[in-house]
Every structure is written in structure tokens, then in C-alpha cells.
Design a protein around this nucleic acid. Structure first.
Length: 746
DNA sequence: GACGCTTGTCATCAC
DNA sequence: AAGTGATGACAAGCG
């Protein structure tokens, strides 16, 4: 029951706070279901701050500082509050440039070529990809680099503005507004959902239309070959184009004339699979990507400039575009495929080209959601094969041609890609990618504070008040002093709960001042005074001037009984001072004086039980006196406990606020990562498409005529072979394969 | 005088 | 069982 109650109270409280801070639309369930312990703790967490026991444990076990959790560090306390406004100022969608730099550093290794070659970012790919492919003489690395660059530009809208092209200005504005709201509220993927759902519907329609278009496509090759073999138009040699199992290239075609055209094990090329689901997925991605791109550019100018606008400095896109490109020039070759030097003709009969207003040079356009039916459907399966099977130029004039077909591994990769995609979407929707969890921790190591409790944040470990410590950077003095004081609090008698043995200083002070107040409080106020304008609080006799509203109200009864009215006695300065001091005394102090308690309230409150009892035994005290002493002790301890409790509450709120900020930062970062992933994916698809077109266009039948794209399609088998099969058969297989992932998801 | 904030205090629970 | 801490609730005081 206890744990349940705590869960309810703490969980609800924190949950509510989170919701209020981050926005109603926060999908807390995702965090709850998230397998990140810190997140769970944020919501349900054994609340470090509210659950004292676990709070202690966390401190002791995780912090390693051994600071007593109950110690009140008013330095941190007030520092945190003072800096709260500053922290709030940061509570907005921000992707610090440092983060971007971090990405660059992290991703450099991935795309070493791209990262190290700033100029590459500017390269345009567009149609150059095909040109590069057709030009075997081109330097492998250079050509590929340029290709990747051109793709980048195309991605940016120069060649193929996929989604933005469909959006009207009003749409863009609306999206932008929604996006801003999303950012402010810390939520908003609904926006994307909504948008891409609409897009999805549109895409479905388009897909259907496109399918019809494709069906009615006039076939140039005319006769439907019963064979799925590649035939050299010149030699008449039939052969199946084969890809090496290692996926890295299209190996020499293995002559297998006996191979029936309908090898069911062969998987349809992503280019040829004209099914809806992949298309939808692709469409959604592109929609989302375009939206986020616009958003990213507006939300974070610097980031957007780095990521999108500055071609030379676009490390991400460069990386992604180049990485796949690098391997492109290897091993891929369709031997025996009759090129006939008509590599440029393929665009004329290529279904993709014809069906789409995209020429061979503008192969990127097919990606436009509006009309890229065949392409979208083909690439719809989101095949990353391009990464692994980049187009390669063989260097040899003929066979190379190099064309690599979209995906040698065909459906295998398609499924894998679907999984990957789903995982990515899931991660993004949930705000966290399990795979990136560790990365997130690294990125936000110091200030991440993904966890609710300060104990998770190294920076917050330095002191009981994680928030204050985390924000202590603004005032180094405060941080140092606070941490030092908190760490030393156990040795001092400042914290009544911690150090009961009141030091001589306290006693002296009290004796000098006539048992005024509690030394612990004086120490606290003095410590906080360095940043508090009212440094007078350092002076014990001024403590209550501005803060204590209760103790300066001396009980009239007691006062009258014990202390003569000021007006009736001397009216000298001493009397005024005494009167002033009296007003500074707490009610309990007045009572103690009235009852002639022989020792100070501080002793009464802060002495350990044993010493306290020993002290009582030394005096002959009446029952009333004993009762008062016990009440004073109880109230005094409770007073400090209340202070601790309130401080913990504030800390908890501050920590939650910081956590929200961190989560928002993470979300923004993940969204940008997603944008980059989508961008690279689109580039790869474009590349694969162009390669497919090129390969297909170079194929010739026995008569030396090109195959009709409407009637034939290239198909990839699991063993890496590439087959030319009738389009109808390819479509059937494509549909079949698309059902698999769907079913599997269910 | 109402209002918000701070602080102290009480009651209660849990350890 | 007593002592103590934690915490919600309330009240008083102040600006």
C-alpha cells in the first residue's frame, strides 16, 4: 500500500507537472513504456525528491558524495530559484550549435570522405549519377562524390522537390505555425501524423492513378519475353544478372538459361514493386521530412544553415550521400548485358522515366509524391540497398556500365528496411531511440539530466540540489560555496537533522544574544546572503526582519507575564535594543524565557536525544517546563523538517523542469536526425532508381531492341542475381512481399 | 482589503 | 513505544 500510494502521489504529481510543462500532447505512455530507466523514474520514478528513503539511497549510492540528503543547503536553494528564470529562458526548442558540432564529430567517421571534404557538399547529383555511371572513365571517388553532391542539391529541392512542391504557401505557413506550437508545447508529432495521413490518402489516390498509368504504358519492347534472363543483344547470350552474395556488387551474370522466368525466390526490385504500402511509407517520410526541413530551417537558423543551407558545410547530408557512394564503384557490373552504347536511350523507354515527368537526368523527380507512382512504389519499400550496393562503374567500357540494380538482396533487405523504418518511426514518435539512448547520454552527459532525480545528472550530484548545482555555472562562487557547504553540512550543526551537536559557536551566539533563534538558520541565511541583497540576514538579530513573520509576534500573555511592557520601563537605547531583540525572538523562545527554561532553545532542539535527556536530568524542571521543552523541541525539528520538505519540493520541480528541457532538446535533436536519415534515404533511393533505369535501358533483346519498361522489370533474387521478368509477374511478387511486413507487424 | 508568498505549526504517517 | 523525519494542511504575517 505504501509503495502504491507513493506511486500514485509522486507519479501523478510529476506526471501532472510534466504534462503542464511539456504540453498536454506529450505522450507519456511512450516514456513509460520506454525502456530507459531514467525516463521511467521521471514519471513513476521512485522520486528521489519526494521519497526520502530512496532519495537517500540514490544519493548515497549514485552520487558517491555521501552528502546527507536532509541537509538544507540554502545556497543552492536560493541559487536554484534565482536561476530558475534563466533556466526557463532556455526552455525552448533549441538545438545548440554545439550539438550540431557534436554530430559532425560523431558522424565524421561514418562518412569520412564527406566530412573531410567540405566541397563535396556542394556537388550536384541530379542526373550526374547516370552520367557518372555511363562514364566508366570517371574517377571512382570523384564521380561518386559528385554524384552524391548532386543528389544533395536535388534533395534540397533543386531537382526534385518532393513534398514541398505539393505544399501551397498556405500549407507551409500552416505547417510552420503548427510546428512552432509543437515546439513550444514540446509535442506535436500529431501534426506530422495528421499531415502525412492526409498525404497518405492523397498518395493512395495517386498511387492508384499511377498504377493505372503504368498499366497502360505502351510497351516499346513489345513482345513479352518468357525468360527472365538477360540477353546480350549482340551475342544473343542469355544470362541472369547476378549480384554477389555479399551485396556489395553485381557480380558477373551467371549464364542460366535454364532458369525459369518465374523464379519465385527472386524478390522484386524495390523499383518495381508498385504496391501501396511502400509508397505510403515513402510518402509519409517525405512529407514529414519536408515539413521538418522547413521547420528546422526556421526554428533554428544556425542549425538549419549548417544542416541544410550551407552546402559545403553540410556534413550530414554529405556523409549520407557519400557514404553510399564510396562503395558504388566496386564490383557492380552486368556482364553480357548489351549496352549498345545506347545508355542514353534508356530514358526513352524507361517506365519510370516515361511515367514520370522525369528524364534520365532528372531521375530525382520521380520521388515527387504527386507523380512518382512507379518510382515511389518501387522505392517504397525503403530499401537502403543503395548504401550497400552503390552503383559502381567498372572502369571497363562495356560490361561495367556498372549498373547496379537497386537491391541485389531484394526483399530481404526490404523487410529489414521495413523493420528499420518502423523502428525509426517508433523511436522518433516516442522521442527516444533505444539505440540512441546511450548516445543521448553521452551527448547530454553533463547537462542531460534525463532522469528526474538529480542523482542521475553528474552535475547535480555535487549537491543535494541538482537543479541549483546544474545551474551553478552562472555563478561559480555559488556553486563552489554551495557544494562545499552542503558537503560540510554534516560536520556543522547547521542542519539540525544532521548535526545535533551544536557547536560552541552556536552556543556562544545564543548566549550572547539571549537564545535567539536557531543557529542553523543563521548559518543558512548567512550562506545565502552572498547573493541575497539582504545580507543583513547574516546578522542573527536581523534574521527575522524580513522573513520571520511569526516569531516577531510575541505572545502577549507570556510577554506581559514575564517581560515588563517596554513603555512602562526604561526608554533608553538599551531598552529599545532589548525590545528589538525580543521581537526577534520566536514564540517558543518567549515561552521558554517566560517559563524560565534554563537552557537555550537551540540546545533543546538540536541536541541528540541522549544529551537532551541528560540535560533535562541536570535540572529540576516542573511538568509545565518539561512539556514546553518537548514542544519546543518538536516544533523546532518540525520547522526544519518543513524547510527541508519545501526545499525538496522546489528541487523536484526544478529537476522536472530541467528534465523537460532536456527531453525537448532530445526531441529536437532526434527530429533533425530523422530529417537527415530521410534525406539520405531519399538520396539513396534516387541513386538506386537512376541505376536501375540505366541498367534496364542498356538491356537488349535478341534483336538488339530495348526492353519495354512497361512489360519487363528487373528483379533481384536473394542470392544476388538479377533477373529480367515480365512486369506482371514482378508486380504480383511485389504485392506478395509487401503483405509480409504488414502481417509481421501485426 | 484582497491576494500571493513565506514561514511556522499541527496532525498524521512511516520508519 | 518513543523519537524522528516527511508532508499535507492551515494560519499568520508581510508586501
Amino acid at each position: 500500500m505504501l509503495s502504491l500510494k507513493k506511486y500514485l502521489t509522486e507519479g501523478l504529481l510529476q506526471f501532472t507537472i510534466l504534462l503542464s510543462l511539456i504540453g498536454v500532447r506529450v505522450d507519456v505512455d511512450t516514456y513509460l513504456t520506454s525502456q530507459l530507466p531514467p525516463l521511467r523514474e521521471i514519471i513513476l520514478g521512485p522520486s528521489s525528491a519526494y521519497t526520502q528513503t530512496q532519495f537517500h539511497n540514490l544519493r548515497n549510492t549514485l552520487d558517491g558524495y555521501g552528502i546527507h540528503p536532509k541537509s538544507i543547503d540554502l545556497d543552492n536553494y536560493f541559487t536554484a530559484r534565482r536561476l530558475l528564470s534563466q533556466v526557463r529562458a532556455l526552455d525552448r526548442f533549441q538545438v545548440p550549435t554545439t550539438e550540431v558540432n557534436a554530430w559532425l564529430v560523431h558522424r565524421d567517421p561514418e562518412g569520412s570522405v564527406s566530412g573531410s571534404q567540405p566541397s563535396s557538399a556542394l556537388a550536384l547529383e541530379s542526373s550526374s549519377g547516370l552520367q557518372d555511371v555511363t562514364g566508366p572513365d570517371n574517377g571512382v571517388r570523384e564521380s561518386e562524390t559528385e554524384q552524391g553532391f548532386s543528389e544533395d542539391l536535388e534533395d534540397l529541392g533543386a531537382v526534385a522537390p518532393p513534398v514541398s512542391g505539393d505544399l501551397t504557401k498556405e500549407d507551409i505557413d500552416l505547417i510552420d505555425i503548427l510546428w512552432r506550437q509543437d515546439i513550444d508545447l514540446g509535442a506535436g508529432r500529431e501534426i506530422f501524423d495528421y499531415s502525412h495521413r492526409q498525404k497518405e490518402q492523397d498518395v493512395d489516390k495517386e498511387l492508384q492513378d499511377g498504377a493505372e498509368q503504368e498499366d497502360t504504358w505502351p510497351g516499346e519492347g513489345a513482345e513479352a519475353l518468357a525468360r527472365n534472363l538477360l540477353v546480350d543483344g549482340e551475342t544473343g547470350e542469355s544470362f541472369p544478372a547476378q549480384f554477389p552474395a555479399d551485396i556489395s556488387s553485381i557480380t558477373e551474370a551467371v549464364p542460366s538459361e535454364s532458369e525459369p522466368p518465374g523464379l519465385q525466390n527472386n524478390l522484386l526490385s524495390p523499383l518495381l514493386t508498385g504496391t501501396e504500402s511502400p509508397f505510403d511509407l515513402e510518402q509519409q517520410w517525405q512529407d514529414l521530412m519536408s515539413i521538418m526541413e522547413m521547420q528546422a530551417m526556421e526554428v533554428n537558423t544556425s542549425t538549419s544553415e549548417i544542416l541544410y543551407n550551407a552546402p559545403p558545410g553540410d556534413p550530414l547530408s554529405t556523409n549520407y550521400s557519400l557514404a553510399p557512394n564510396t562503395p558504388i564503384n566496386q564490383n557492380v557490373s552486368l556482364h553480357q548485358a548489351s549496352l549498345g552504347g545506347c545508355s542514353q536511350d534508356f530514358s526513352l523507354f524507361s517506365p519510370e522515366v516515361e511515367s514520370l515527368p522525369v528524364a534520365g537526368s532528372s531521375t530525382l523527380l520521380p520521388l515527387a509524391p504527386s507523380n512518382s507512382t512507379s518510382l515511389n512504389s518501387t522505392f517504397g519499400s525503403t530499401n537502403l540497398a543503395g548504401l550497400f550496393f552503390p552503383p559502381q562503374l567498372n572502369g571497363t567500357a562495356n560490361d561495367t556500365a556498372g549498373p547496379e540494380l537497386p537491391d541485389p538482396l531484394g526483399g530481404l533487405l526490404d523487410e529489414a528496411m521495413l523493420d528499420e523504418i518502423s523502428l525509426m518511426d517508433l523511436a522518433i514518435e516516442e522521442g527516444f531511440n533505444p539505440v540512441q539512448a546511450s548516445q543521448l547520454e553521452e551527448e547530454f552527459d553533463s547537462d542531460s539530466g534525463l532522469s528526474l532525480d538529480s542523482s542521475h545528472s553528474p552535475s547535480s550530484l555535487s549537491s543535494p540540489e541538482g537543479s541549483s548545482s546544474s545551474s551553478s555555472s552562472s555563478s561559480s562562487s555559488s556553486s563552489s560555496s554551495s557544494s562545499a557547504s552542503s558537503s560540510a553540512s554534516s560536520s556543522f550543526s547547521e542542519e539540525g537533522a544532521v548535526g545535533y551537536s551544536s557547536d560552541s559557536e552556536t552556543l556562544d551566539l545564543e548566549e550572547a544574544e539571549g537564545a535567539v533563534g536557531y543557529q542553523p538558520e543563521y548559518s543558512k541565511f548567512c550562506r545565502m546572503s552572498y547573493q541575497d541583497p539582504s545580507q543583513l540576514s547574516c546578522l542573527p538579530y536581523l534574521e527575522h526582519v524580513g522573513h520571520n513573520h511569526t516569531y516577531n509576534m510575541a505572545p502577549s500573555a507570556l510577554d506581559s507575564a514575564d517581560l515588563p511592557p517596554p513603555s512602562t520601563v526604561k526608554k533608553g537605547s538599551k531598552e529599545k535594543q532589548a525590545d528589538f531583540l525580543d521581537k526577534q525572538m520566536s514564540r517558543d523562545e518567549h515561552r521558554a524565557r517566560a517559563m524560565k527554561i534554563p537552557f537555550t532553545n537551540d540546545k533543546i532542539i538540536n541536541l541528540p536525544v541522549e544529551e537532551f535527556n541528560e540535560l533535562l536530568s541536570k535540572y529540576q524542571l516542573s511538568e509545565a517546563q518539561l512539556s514546553l521543552i518537548r514542544d519546543i523541541r518538536r516544533r523546532g525539528k518540525n520547522k526544519m523538517a518543513a524547510q527541508n520538505c519545501r526545499k525538496r519540493k522546489l528541487d523536484t520541480i526544478l529537476n522536472l523542469e530541467r528534465d523537460v528541457e532536456d527531453l525537448q532538446r532530445d526531441k529536437a535533436r532526434l527530429l533533425q536526425e530523422k530529417v537527415e536519415f530521410l534525406r539520405s534515404l531519399r538520396q539513396m533511393k534516387q541513386k538506386v532508381q537512376s541505376l536501375y533505369q540505366e541498367v534496364f535501358g542498356r538491356l537488349r533483346d535478341e534483336n538488339g531492341r530495348p526492353y519495354s519498361p512497361s512489360q519487363y522489370a528487373l528483379q533481384y533474387a536473394g542470392d544476388g542475381s538479377v533477373l529480367l521478368i515480365p512486369r506482371t509477374l514482378a508486380d504480383q511478387q511485389a504485392r506478395r512481399q509487401e503483405r509480409k511486413p504488414k502481417d509481421r507487424r501485426k
